[in-house]
Amino acid sequence: MSEQLRFTKEHEWLLVKGDVIRIGISDYAQNELGDIVFVDLPSVGDTVEEGEGIAALESVKAVSDVYSPVSGEVVAVNEELEDSPELVNESPLDQGWIVEIKVDGVAQTGDLMNKQEYEAFLKEV
C-alpha cells in the first residue's frame, strides 16, 4: 500500500486514483505534531488552489495547516476524524487520511518522492 504513496517535502502524502487524489500526512509529521486532538476539515464541494490550506491539524498547543499539493475540488473528507482525530497518529498512512481532491486536468506527481526517496530525505532533515 505505502509503496503507491508519493510524498512532498511538507511531509504530506498523495495517493493517485485516476483524477482523484487522496491526501494525508506522513508518520514523521504526525510524530512531530504530537497528539492530534482535532482535525478541521473542509467541506465537500470546496474548491482549492495548489498551496492553499485545506485542513488544519490541532494538537493541544499547536495548529498545523495541511496545504493542498494540487488544485481542484474536495470530493471527500475523512469524517472518521471528526470523532477520532487520533487516527492521524495511529494510522497516518491509511485510516488517518484527510481529504480527497478531484484535480483539474492531469495530476502532476513527477517531482514527488516515493517511499525510499522520502526516507532518504528525512535523514537529511
Binding site: 482535532f38 490541532e58 493541544v60 499547536a62 495548529v63
Partner: peptide, 12 residues
C-alpha cells in the same frame, strides 16, 4: 480548546 486563542493562533 486553546488552539482557538491568540497565544497559539495569533492573527488567525
Amino acid at each position: 480548546l486553546q488552539t482557538r486563542e491568540q497565544h497559539i493562533r495569533r492573527e488567525k
